[in-house]
Every structure is written in structure tokens, then in C-alpha cells.
Simulated scan of single mutants.
Amino acid sequence: MATASSSSSGIFASICLLHAAVAATCGALMMFYLNEIAEVGHGRETARRLQGSTPHDQLLIQTSESFAGLLLFAIGLLLFMVAFVKDRDFQAFFAKGCILLHAAMALWRVFFERRLEDLARDWPRQLVGDLVLSLSWVLFLVYSWREKYD
């Protein structure tokens, strides 16, 4: 039984480290290269419109996006720390929480982001990303349940 537990712990650690790398990288890019990342993600014209029209708006938006990037970077560090937890019950609890978080983000995109004219063409792609990230946690839960009940 020890190999089954260590196997699911290894999968949990791998998923956490992958998500941590994505979150920390995206957060750092948002903090330091906001305009360039916005152009890559949304296109040059949309990125220009999302920057704001007045200097005050631009500063407010840039500050807000930098703090969002800092939060995302902190989430990446948290995921990195959680990756090394070996408690099976905590892993299942954490995975379920991550599934709920990604589902909430998907619902946010469906009900709110799609209504924003400047982001209307981006939300389907981001929705797929939310669903794929959530699916990784679902697959972990299925794998750990299969090990538990076999």
C-alpha cells in the first residue's frame, strides 16, 4: 500500500509543480511585462484599448494588473509549497478546492467576461484553459480514488 500512496503523492506533486510554474511565470510576466503580454494575449489593438485612455486610468490599470500578477505569483509559491505535502486527505481536499476555483473562474468568464466587448473574442480560449486545468485535478482525484478502492 505504500507504493500506491507514494504514487498518488508523486502525481499530486507533479500537478502542483506544473500549476506553480504556470502561475508564477504568468504572475511575473504580468508584473514586469504587462503591455507585451497583453499584446500577445489579446492583440495589439485590444491591448491598447485595455490600457485606458487617460494617464490616471493607465496608472490605475497598470497598478491593478501588477497586484494581480503579484497575487498570481504568490499562488504559484503556495502551490510549490503544497506540492510536498504527503497527507492523502489533504491532497484530496486541496484538489477539490482547486476544481471549485477553476469552475468559478469558468463561470465568471461565461457570465461576465463574454459581455465585455474588448474581451469577447478571448473568453472561449480562456474557458478551455480553465477546464483543462480543472481536469488535471479531476484526473488526480480519479486516480487516487482508484488506488484507494482497488
Score class of each variant (00 low, 15 high):
Leu139Gln: 14
Thr46Asp: 11
Gly52Asn: 03
Pro124Gly: 11
Phe73Arg: 02
Arg88Leu: 12
Ala74Gly: 13
Cys16Ile: 04
Phe80Lys: 01
Leu100Gln: 12
His102Ala: 06
Trp137Asn: 06
Ile61Gln: 07
Leu59Gln: 12
Phe67Ser: 04
Leu135Val: 09
Ala21Pro: 00
Leu60Glu: 08
Asp150Ala: 11
Trp137Pro: 08
Leu34Ala: 06
Asp122Val: 10
Gly97Arg: 06
Ala68His: 08
Asp122Met: 09
Leu141Ala: 05
Trp108Leu: 09
His56Leu: 13
Phe12Leu: 06
Val142Ser: 04
Arg115Gly: 12
Ser136His: 04
Ser53Val: 06
His19Ser: 09
Leu139Ser: 11
His56Asn: 06
Ala38Pro: 00
Ser53Ile: 04
Ala13Trp: 00
Ala47Gly: 11
His19Tyr: 01
Phe112Lys: 10
Lys86Ser: 06
Pro55Ile: 06
Thr63Arg: 08
Val138Phe: 10
Ala68Gln: 09
Leu70Thr: 09
Ala23Pro: 02
Leu70Arg: 02
Met105Asp: 14
Ser14Val: 01
Gly69Val: 03
Phe94Trp: 10
Thr46Val: 15
Leu72Trp: 11
Val128Asn: 02
Pro55Tyr: 07
Met81Gly: 11
Trp123Ser: 02
Leu107Thr: 11
Ala2Glu: 14
Leu60Gly: 00
Arg114Leu: 05
Leu116Phe: 03
Ser5Cys: 02
Leu100Trp: 10
Leu70Asp: 01
Trp137Tyr: 15
Thr25Ala: 14
Asp118Lys: 04
Met81Val: 10
Ser134Trp: 01
Ala106Arg: 00
Phe112Tyr: 15
Ala20Leu: 06
Val85Arg: 12
Phe90Val: 04
His42Thr: 07
Phe67Lys: 04
His19Asn: 08
Cys98Arg: 14
Met105Cys: 14
Val40Asp: 01
Ala4His: 10
Leu116Cys: 08
Phe84Asn: 08
Leu18His: 13
Met105Val: 12
Leu79Trp: 14
Leu127Ile: 01
Gly76His: 05
Phe32Val: 08
Leu77Tyr: 05
Asp122Arg: 07
Phe80Met: 07
Ala95Arg: 00
Thr54Glu: 03
Ala95Leu: 03
Ile75Tyr: 15
Pro55Ser: 12
Ser7Tyr: 12
Ser136Leu: 15
Gly97Ile: 03
Val40Leu: 05
Lys96Asn: 12
Ser144Leu: 02
Trp108Phe: 13
Arg125Gln: 10
Gly10Ala: 13
Glu147Lys: 15
Pro55Thr: 09
Asp118Phe: 03
Arg48Thr: 12
Leu18Ser: 15
Ala24Gly: 12
Ala20Ile: 07
Val40Trp: 00
Leu71Asp: 02
Arg48Val: 06
Ala47Trp: 04
Gln91Arg: 12
Ser14Phe: 11
